[in-house]
Amino acid sequence: MKILILGGTAEARQLANRLVALGHDVITSLAGRTQDPILPEGGLRMGPFGGIPGLCAYLRVAGIERLVDATHPYAGLISINAVAAAQASGVRLVRYMRPPWTPLPGQTWMLVESAQEAADALPGAATVLLTTGHAGLETFLERDDCRFQVRVIEAPAFEMPPHAELILSRPPYGLEDEMALLRRHGVTHLVSKNSGGGQTAAKLEAARRMNVQVIMIARPLYGPALEAASIEEAIEALDLPESLAGL
Rank of each mutant, 00 (worst) to 15 (best):
I5M: 00
L6V: 05
L6E: 03
L6P: 06
L6T: 01
T9A: 02
E11P: 03
N17T: 05
N17F: 01
R18V: 05
L19Q: 07
A21M: 12
D25Y: 04
A31K: 07
G32M: 04
Q35R: 14
D36T: 08
L39F: 00
P40C: 11
G42Q: 04
G43Q: 03
R45G: 00
M46N: 09
P48T: 08
F49D: 00
G51A: 14
G54F: 09
A62F: 05
I64P: 01
R66W: 11
A70N: 09
T71D: 00
T71V: 01
I80K: 15
A84Q: 14
A85T: 00
Q87F: 11
G90K: 10
L93P: 09
L93T: 07
V94E: 05
R95L: 05
P100T: 07
L104H: 12
G106S: 05
M110G: 07
M110H: 13
L111C: 04
L111F: 02
V112S: 08
S114D: 07
S114E: 14
S114R: 11
A118G: 04
A118R: 03
A121W: 08
P123D: 11
G124R: 05
A125F: 15
A126Q: 07
A126L: 12
L129R: 15
L129H: 15
L129V: 06
L137I: 10
Q149E: 13
V150C: 01
E154I: 01
A157N: 01
M160G: 02
P162T: 06
L166M: 02
L168M: 13
S169H: 11
P171L: 06
G174Y: 00
E176N: 12
D177V: 02
D177G: 10
E178L: 06
A180R: 14
V191C: 12
S192E: 02
N194E: 04
N194S: 05
G197R: 06
A201S: 13
L204C: 10
L204E: 00
M210N: 11
V212W: 07
V212K: 11
V214C: 10
I217R: 13
P220F: 15
P224L: 11
A228C: 08
E236K: 14
L238R: 10
L244Y: 13
A245D: 12
G246T: 10
